[in-house]
């Protein structure tokens, strides 16, 4: 599966989409869900929580293992996706549609520090070797 060019990525396998209202949606990448296998549990941060960049803030669990999800940038949680919490398999079905939570970044410029699709592609390839 190709890595969407319109998203930003973290080294810890989150994808980040800048929405029209200036908030960002966060999910885990197709590659990450492939490594984890069938998803069975999602725990999101509570709305209103303030997060530092790189802070552990959510958990995804597959049948196989639990994995932490990190805040890609500093900000405040403004929404969580309850549809994904009640049907975690949506992450397996379409990882880039299954956003987990939305943040209002403290500083929009922080997004520039994240990887683009080519950078993430290179990371995935280097991890495969």
């Amino acid at each position: 599966m190709s890595i969407p060019a319109d998203l930003k990525y973290t080294q810890s396998h989150e994808w980040v989409r800048l929405e029209a209202d200036g908030t960002v949606s966060v999910g885990i990448t197709h590659h990450a869900q492939e490594l984890l296998g069938d998803m069975v549990f999602v725990e999101n941060p509570t709305v209103g929580r303030r997060l530092a960049a790189g802070q552990e803030c959510a958990v995804v669990e597959s049948v196989k293992a639990a994995s932490d999800v990190y805040a890609p940038v500093a900000g405040e949680v403004v929404a969580v996706n309850e549809a994904v919490e009640s049907a975690p398999e949506r992450i397996n079905q379409d990882a880039y549609a299954a956003w987990m939570f939305r943040l209002r970044p403290d500083n929009a410029a922080d997004l520039n520090g994240l990887m683009d699709a080519a950078g993430y592609q290179a990371q995935v390839e280097s991890e495969a070797h």
Partner: peptide
Amino acid sequence: PIHYGSQI
């Protein structure tokens, strides 16, 4: 083999 696509 841990799975062939979907463990569930």
